[in-house]
Design a protein around this nucleic acid. Structure first.
Lengths: 217, 217, 217, 217
DNA sequence: GATGAATGAGTCTTCATTCAT
DNA sequence: CATGAATGAAGACTCATTCAT
């Protein structure tokens, strides 16, 4: 599956087996069926039989596209996490940060992160659930987190360069910021907190991050 | 095995909670066996048969002390999380916080939290794994987190009262602080980070928290 | 399972798990059910479900006595082959060989071997079928064949010592004799040959062996 | 792939036996691919998908040349066994047997038989494995064995006619000789015996056969 | 109270074969 | 004629839980 946008792909591009149109469609149907079922019922609770049923194919077909159930999850996790990260990465572009209202930019970023957690919450739960259990899920997540943290770090360095930020240890800061915000967002949203509590958390988190990275006026 | 055969038991002998010495010991042995096995292999990978074996009893015995496998986990989670929390709660006592070096106190607190993650890491992983999956695990964890967050809030209010802190929204602050530090600690330690990275994270986290709650000199 | 006679076993003897009477009986029932089913339908065609059904237990029970289907076969093969071999080994005792009618003794031995093939023919087929396929079956069979060939060799040496035999290479002779007779017997009997053909083969095989090992008068 | 798209096909195009060059080649490729795979991995372990892959065709194509997997094996077994038998049949021609050194002729024959077992051992194993399992394999093998045994019998009669042999029961003798030598050879060679053991077995087998069929000088 | 044998529903996975394109 | 996507029956094995002894 494409993963990243892959806007302009070379003409004969085909990444795996699917060479025929029907095959491609079946694969997509399988991934979608699996994603929906995982989302609704969780990973362990989803049987390959149900995935097949919802995709409208036979069980065997599942196994001609994926070696096993885990492989389907992996692909979905990659896609989902990547999509979510993409939204955040866009907001981390230093060019978009007005010098006038840095706290506002931070706030907007935090808000975005909190909001993304509303996408496919079931799948995000599965990621937490399997993070320590499945090395590949972990690697998959960490690859994307590395991209995020690098973007955060670059932003910090940028702020520093325009005399707006103050960072002692950019790597550690990126790590701590990323981890803190991510988890606060996840727990709050996936845990079903009220809108008011979410807003309060966004505000406080913004203060916290601002306090860490912004040079006091 | 000591003690006479329990030939004459008191009429209304309760069957639930341990009333006899042997019973209590068996229960403890079961809990320990389960905790060790969960710790080593994870929850799903631990069979009740293995717990029984390691406790030196028959499978059936497990079920005369606990309604099911999950109940054992619940008890262990409660104990473990409570023990870990206790260490942190002690450090949150406002009386222990010197006014002179508030940042140092924060740092010490953060350090303590990071350190506690080294206790029973396998069990802590299970808590993450099951947090969204098992409502009782969630409740169990949240009950203790509530205590922690209340203590944090009280500390914030105390700092405020001595003109050392500044808190706009103590509830949100307690939540965000707790969640951020907890997760940063967990991922770093459970993920096996190097000592240097841990130290850097402690330092940066301290800065971040200090920036949020301390009144700038 | 006992395997060899184990005539006088130490009082508290119990070889594997079975400590309770019921357990022992279940195990026996399982082995018998499996042997009968293997015998009738062949190994691959026998499902663990059917073994369980015929033993009157649940599938799971099968797996609490044996790690897998193959293990049941192995045990049965060991027993069956050993039993068959025992009948032949008895006939190889030099003391039973009259000096007067050595050809008659050989004939009787050959006849015995041919006759044993009528025991559990289905299982014997399975042994051939899996001989090159399953290393443990092979080892199992070869262990017993080694005993047989050793007995043959000793007999040859004995005949030599009483000036009745002539053997150039006792090891090779034992091997060739054993293999030839065994396979001729197996193919003929397992292939369902007529009584007349069997008798003719016994006679000719006797001539062949006698020609090899007996000193011409 | 060669050839123009089969746009205009001759109306009554025969579907069964190879009439066109390409078809014949495809069939040969399939048989070879199957033979190699069977040889390397065994019958059960070979999937039709792999045969197709190695032949460079689609699975469906396999089924336009053969009704099923078993049919491919049957054809291969026929060919292989026939080829092997041919080598032996040549050596059974009475004209080639010098009267001077009959034991030498027997020895050479035995040697030839042992040597042929080194051809396609994997396939020969499959024949043993399926001999009792698959009636057609059995028939196929037996048809060729009948030819061999007839040749043996004719040889015996020939030796008798020139006063060199002595045979009580030519049919039984042919059967016993054939079966004994065949199996001794198979087990020894397919079992991977050392050259020395093979040589010893050849020698002893020669003695055994000579003792049965040659008139003592 | 303890024992441990027995349960059996539930899962994943394989692969020969078919048939629409 | 070839293709290869799809089929789906079948089977081995697991393990939390029960209950007769």
């Amino acid at each position: 599956m494409p993963g990243a946008p892959a806007r302009s792909r070379p003409p004969g591009g085909g990444q795996r087996r699917p060479q025929q149109a029907r095959s491609r469609r079946t694969r997509r149907r399988l991934v979608e069926a699996a994603a929906n079922t995982f989302e609704e019922k969780g990973y362990d609770e989803t049987t390959t039989a149900e995935i097949a049923r919802r995709a409208g194919v036979a069980v065997g077909t599942v196994y001609s596209y994926f070696p096993d159930k885990r492989a389907i999850l992996l692909e979905i996790v990659n896609d989902t996490v990547a999509q979510v990260a993409e939204l955040i990465l866009e907001r981390l572009d230093p060019d978009l940060w007005s010098t006038d209202d840095l706290r506002g930019s931070i706030r907007e970023l935090i808000h975005t992160i909190f909001t993304t957690r509303r996408l496919r919450p079931g799948l995000q739960r599965i990621v937490w659930e399997r993070y320590f259990k499945d090395a590949e899920v972990r690697e998959s997540l960490e690859a994307i987190e590395t991209r995020l943290m690098t973007a955060v770090k670059n932003l910090l360095l940028h702020l520093d360069s325009i005399d707006a930020g103050r960072v002692r240890d950019p790597d550690a800061a990126a790590y701590v910021i990323h981890t803190s915000v991510e988890w606060t967002a996840s727990r709050l949203i996936l845990g079903g907190a009220s809108e008011a509590r979410v807003e309060a958390a966004v505000e406080t988190t913004t203060d916290m991050i601002a306090g860490l990275i912004l040079r006091p006026a």
